[in-house]
Every structure is written in C-alpha cells, then in structure tokens.
Design a protein around this nucleic acid. Structure first.
Lengths: 192, 192
DNA sequence: CTCCAATATTGACACCGTCAATTTGTCTCG
DNA sequence: CGAGACAAATTGACGGTGTCAATATTGGAG
C-alpha cells in the first residue's frame, strides 16, 4: 500500500497547499517552506515526495494540465461532428481555464520553472498539441500554407492571446464587427 | 553634472552587468548582489540607482525595448511603401531579436517581474502596439473581423510563436508548402 | 575652505533551497 | 508476538538572497 506513515497523504496535501498559495499570491509564493508550513509539516518534509522546488512545481503543473484536459472533455467535444464547432469549443475551454486560473495557466508554460524531462508533463502537452493538429487536419489541406504552419498559428494565437489577456491587455471582450468574443474571432480569422 | 562620485557611471555598469548575467545564466541569476559583484561594488550600492530588484530588471527591460526598436528601425521600414512589405519586415526583425536574445526577449514580457507602472516601459510597449495597429490599418477594413481583432491576432501570433520557438518547440524553420520561414508564413495566413 | 548631499560601505535581519544527521512511526517477516 | 528494516518526518546547519539602517566617503557648490 502507498499510504503514508505519519501524515497520511502528504503529497496530495502539499499540492493543495501549493495550489492555494499559487492562486492567491503567485508562483513566487510557492516555496517549499511555505507549502510545508501550510500543510503543517516541517520545512524538510516535502523532500520525501518532491526532490526539489522544481519537482514540486512540476507536480502542480501536471495537476493543472489534468484539470484543463477535463475542462476540454466536459465541453462534449468528442460528440461534435462539425470541425469548426469542435475548434471553437476547444478554444473556448482553453480561454476560460486560462482567464479563470491565471496563475495556474502561467505556471503550466513556465518551462524555466518546470522539469521538461518529466514524462507525465510532456505527455500532457503533447496530447493538447495533437488534439489541435487533429482538428486543423479536419479542415483539409489549404493551398497557401501547410497544415503544420496552421497548427502552429492556432497554438500561437490562442496561447499568446490568453497570456496577453491575463496580463491585462486588450480588455475589450468582443470583436467590434461581429460581436463574437475576441478569442473566437481570432481563431475564425485563421480558419478556411 | 550627473557624473557619479565614486564609481563614475555605476548605473550603466549595473545594466551591462545585468545583461551579461541575463544572457549567460537567465533572469534568475540577475540578483542585486550578483550584479553588484560583477560591477565591483558592494552589495548595497545599486540601491542608489535602482530602488529594488524589480526596478533593476525594469531598467534592463527598457534597454532591451530600445534595442528592439532600433532593430526594427534598421530594417528601413519607414521608407517602404507596400503594406505587406512593411509587415513582413517588422515581423522579421521582431522574430530575429527574440531568437537571438531569448533571455532578453523573455524578460521584456515578464509583467510579473517588471514595474508595470514605469512610464518609460509602458511607452515602449505602446509604441510597438501602435506600430502594429498602423500597419494593419493600412490593409483596409476587412468584412468579417474588426481591425482591432486583427491587430490582436497579429500581436498574439508573433509573440506566441517567438516564445514557443525560444522554448524549443517547432524547430522546423520553413513552411512545408511555401518554403517561407515559418514566422512569415504565419503572418501571411492572417493578411487579407 | 567649508559644508552638504549624493554615493558607497558595512552590518544586520528574515527569508529561501538544500543537505546531513537524527528521530519517529509503521509494516513485514521470522 | 516481537524485533528489525525502512520510509517518513524532524532538527539544525550552511550559503545565498532582498532589504533596511547606520555609517563613511567623496565631489562640487557656495
């Protein structure tokens, strides 16, 4: 059994404490010692579950990726037939997760703070990327740009927009011409 | 005269030391104490020129924005007449600066590390934004999306792409279909 | 020449990550 | 059932950090 000896489930408690600190005070506040304090253990207890701060943050990021994946699944995207409908549902879930959880979303892409050799972490990001690739492929092969470039464009545009919005830029919500939410309008500008 | 009393030009020396540390070891290595050591002064000397670490990093970022602005100007973009030609020159300069100075480029957009109330800093970013706005406006008012959304899309797509490339994603350089460098192909996908 | 204000130094404090040595608790196996 | 093995947690230390207060130094204005 994996049951912990003293605390019971310290690993889970540490991640929850880290999430709380991350949401309320930003990633800088997520220190090993602060997380340990919040969980009610000594400052060196976390080392048994996370080798160092990077490993702790990586664990938190993996949790967030699973959360995002669930949000995408919850849109019912798997049962949609129209390629455009799928794409807009995906973008909407992505955008909402980022805007509702800015500090979590930022951390998820902070390669400088995460362990890029973590298998679980790279699995989660590759899953998202291949999802986008599949959706773009459904639109067919356009004449003036490769599918791969269109995938990269889609990833760049939504990720760049979410990051800019999180930082307080472009506070207008809708496209002035179509009335669509801006993140929808941006992606539609790319679709054939 | 503004000449410093002891060191001579400590502020400039601190920024140069910070740039050196930033380029070689990343933003985490840019600590007040390390910068002071590199400049050959005591650990508390910088406080006379930068109130705290945030102010130091903001000073460095402003220097980088001026550098980028010069790179854009150096393309001769002001003398170009064709809107598309201008846009591609701008994107090219932006992309090259980011890829050649990854740590500098990353720092420039790290609002969590910079002083967003710094007038000079906001001036520099707004200048870039209005430059993009002017170029997009030259293309005219498209039917299915507002100019503002197109501006946001252009900013998001190039910024998102540069960040992803810096982190080692999408290492392929050219669009598989057109042969254009990818950052050019991405922007062309957006232009009318 | 004198004095002042800007500049730089020194020293202290509270954090941080990380390591080593140690204690505590629990599970397994004879 | 009991003893040992071993994982988990504690304690204490080290060097590093940002930041502040008190002090010393210097160059130039009057």
């Amino acid at each position: 059994m994996k049951k912990a000896h003293h605390h019971g489930a310290l690993k889970q408690a540490l991640i929850e404490a880290a999430l709380h600190l991350l949401d309320s005070e930003g990633v800088e506040a997520v220190t090993i010692r602060a997380v340990a304090r919040q969980a009610g253990v000594s400052h060196a207890a976390p080392v048994n579950h996370f080798a160092d701060r990077r490993a702790l943050l990586t664990g938190v990021a993996i949790f967030c990726f699973e959360e995002l994946q669930q949000a995408i699944t919850a849109t019912g995207i798997r049962n949609m037939s129209d390629a455009r409908e799928k794409m807009l549902a995906f973008v909407d879930a992505f955008y909402n997760y980022g805007l509702n959880n800015p500090n979590r979303y930022r951390l998820m892409w902070r390669q400088d703070m995460l362990d890029s050799s973590d298998v679980k972490l790279t699995e989660m990001t590759e899953k998202l990327f291949s999802h986008v690739t599949n959706m773009i492929t459904e639109f067919g092969d356009p004449p003036n740009i490769s599918i791969m470039s269109r995938v990269v464009a889609a990833c760049s545009i939504i990720h760049g927009y979410v990051l800019l919005r999180i930082d307080g830029n472009f506070i207008g919500f809708a496209d002035e011409k179509t009335g669509h939410p801006r993140h929808i309008a941006l992606i539609e500008a790319l679709l054939p």
